[in-house]
Amino acid sequence: MEATIALSLDLKGLSCPIPIVKTAMAMKQLAPGQLVEVFATDPGSVPDFKAWSKTTGNPLIESGEEGGVFRFLLKKKEVVR
């Protein structure tokens, strides 16, 4: 089943660490498995979202760029029982 995007965050123009911080805070409101898309312009957010996903276990489903805007699609991790 294709999950729909539960939340879209516009964090364009903001610098480190705000894109990660705001995303982490917003994802607390989501249920496991829900998707969030994030738009950012800080080039440092590309490695940062990758590292954040790896350390927190929230999968980074997509990472792309279009016209200087980076888009990240993240999935809130399932609860491990």
Partner: peptide, 11 residues
């Protein structure tokens, strides 16, 4: 403070 907020964001 950048590192502290980032650490918190990483859980």
């Amino acid at each position: 403070l950048i590192l502290a907020t980032s650490g918190a964001a990483m859980g």
